[in-house]
Nucleic acid binder design. Structure first.
Lengths: 159, 159
DNA sequence: TTTAATTCCTATTAATTTACTTGGATATAA
DNA sequence: TTATATCCAAGTAAATTAATAGGAATTAAA
């Protein structure tokens, strides 16, 4: 029940990109270096984000990536689903009962599906309720605090 | 971001056990057959449940397993955490910022942790809010409906 | 027009985890 | 004493994840 490095690295990469989105375009090599992630691997992650319409790639020298839409229009859910696929704890066929599946032939299986659905809904609700812009704002606050006072930054992180 | 078969099979096994808990003790072979799970594998899953104090094993002929406590005192969260370990989407060290970890040296990492915490809390809240007894009640209802009217059962399953 | 920087794309490999299987030892009711 | 069970530890096969590698295509700038 763990996110893979796709989701973990990828979310950090998007936050990093959003933090630097004022510049012309952010090269992947910069993100990779700042986040300590192999650039080749990061390429594969950003490809998913591009496909999902979250970032745009700009080819050629001085190229890089930019957010495709404003940070307050992108939820953490959008990002994680682009990177990981759906966030359900079981495969889709195990959640949605159709007439073709054995479905209710076994009542135990049936109520288990109800559990999976509750978990899925709860996860999606949580991640869809956090917008990228909030993370950027929070991140800037932490950085600002950290410049003036180290202890305060650590405290902020613990919350 | 998927539960393993440990969690999927294991929850079904516990529901099955709870459904038959009026009998003296339920042999693993019966559960395995009803649920279509290899008995040897199920053994490993039930060992976790035993260790967590959710079921008791009764050795010897006519032995088997029984719930260690009443079904309304066992949450789905208890069961899944026993089977899968903690239900956090990332390893513990990535959620809890300590002074020893690099922690807030990187603000992006820091706000990502906040996301992981929100997801973890949300999952735990969902699974701790469902008691085993509710699943048993629901399962009996479905079985009863299914005996009288197939269409109704399918409808109940879809919710 | 060349060059360096960059995205874009596909294949391969290494590492890790999952999902079992196997083979017994131990306990106990009948 | 025997059949029926739990209990326990190793081993293995399959699948997935994480990463590496190599090069084609594009473009700004020298």
């Amino acid at each position: 029940m763990k996110l893979s490095t796709k989701g973990r690295y990828g979310l950090r990469a998007v936050i990093d990109l959003a933090m630097h989105d004022h510049e012309d375009a952010v090269a992947l090599s910069q993100i990779a270096e700042r986040q300590g992630i192999s650039m080749n691997y990061l390429e594969q992650l950003i490809a998913r984000l591009k496909k999902a319409g979250i970032v745009n790639g700009i080819r050629g020298a001085q190229g890089g990536y930019k957010l495709a839409v404003a940070a307050d229009k992108i939820s953490v859910g959008d990002i994680l689903r682009a990177l990981e696929g759906d966030l359900s704890p079981v495969d889709c066929s195990e959640v949605i009962a159709t007439e073709s599946t054995t479905g209710c032939s076994n009542a135990d299986t049936c109520v288990a599906k109800y559990v999976w659905k509750r978990i899925t809904d709860s996860i999606n609700e949580a991640v869809d309720g956090i917008m990228l812009s909030e993370l950027v704002d929070e991140s800037r606050k932490i950085q600002a605090d950290s410049n003036g006072n180290d202890t305060k930054a650590k405290y902020a992180c613990g919350k």
